[in-house]
Amino acid sequence: MNKFSYNKPKLDIPKTSLQKIFDFLTIIIFLAGMIYIISVWDQLPDQVPAHYNAAGEVDRWGSKWELVLLPAIAVLMAIFLTFLEKHPEWHNYMNLNESNIEFQYRNSMIFLNVIKNQCVLLFVFLSFNISQVALGKAESLGILFLPIFLVIMFGTMAFFIIRSIKQK
Rank of each mutant, 00 (worst) to 15 (best):
G142E: 06
A134K: 04
E139A: 04
A74R: 06
Y52V: 10
F149I: 12
D59N: 11
D23K: 02
F125N: 06
F149S: 07
V120T: 10
I13Q: 12
F4E: 09
I152C: 05
W65D: 09
L146N: 08
G56Y: 06
Q118F: 12
F22N: 03
I165D: 01
I27Q: 03
M34D: 07
E102D: 07
E85T: 13
K15S: 13
T26P: 00
A72E: 08
L70W: 08
P49M: 06
N129F: 05
E66A: 01
W90P: 01
S140Y: 01
K3Y: 15
H87E: 03
L141W: 02
L44C: 02
V114A: 03
I21W: 10
F83K: 08
I29H: 04
V75F: 08
W61T: 08
A138E: 08
E89V: 05
V120N: 01
I152Q: 08
R163W: 10
L25S: 07
F83H: 09
P71E: 04
K8Q: 07
K3D: 15
A72K: 12
F159W: 14
N2W: 14
I152G: 02
A74K: 04
A54K: 15
N129M: 14
V151S: 07
F145Y: 09
V133A: 03
I161M: 08
K166Y: 08
L84M: 13
F128K: 12
I29R: 04
N100Q: 06
I38D: 03
M77G: 01
M94Y: 13
L69I: 14
P14A: 07
G33T: 15
W41S: 06
H87S: 01
V75I: 15
Q19I: 11
F4Q: 06
L18F: 15
L69M: 09
W41V: 09
N53L: 05
V48N: 04
I143W: 13
I27H: 04
M153C: 05
N7Y: 09
C119Q: 14
L122Q: 13
L141R: 01
I35V: 15
K168T: 12
G142W: 02
Q104E: 06
Q47W: 11
Q167P: 00
L69Y: 08
I152D: 06
V75M: 01
V40R: 09
Q104I: 11
F160C: 03
A78M: 11
Q104C: 03
F145L: 02
I29M: 04
A50Q: 12
V114Y: 08
W41P: 00
L81H: 08
K8T: 09
G62C: 07
G56V: 11
Q43W: 09
V58S: 02
L84F: 14
N97A: 01
M109E: 08
N2K: 14
F24M: 02
F24C: 05
L76A: 12
Q104N: 05
L76K: 07
A138T: 12
M153S: 09
A74Q: 05
T82M: 10
F22A: 01
W41Q: 04
F159P: 03
L146R: 09
T16V: 06
Q104P: 00
L144Q: 14
G62H: 11
V40N: 05
Q167R: 11
K86Y: 13
F149V: 11
R60H: 10
L150Q: 09
N113I: 05
N53K: 05
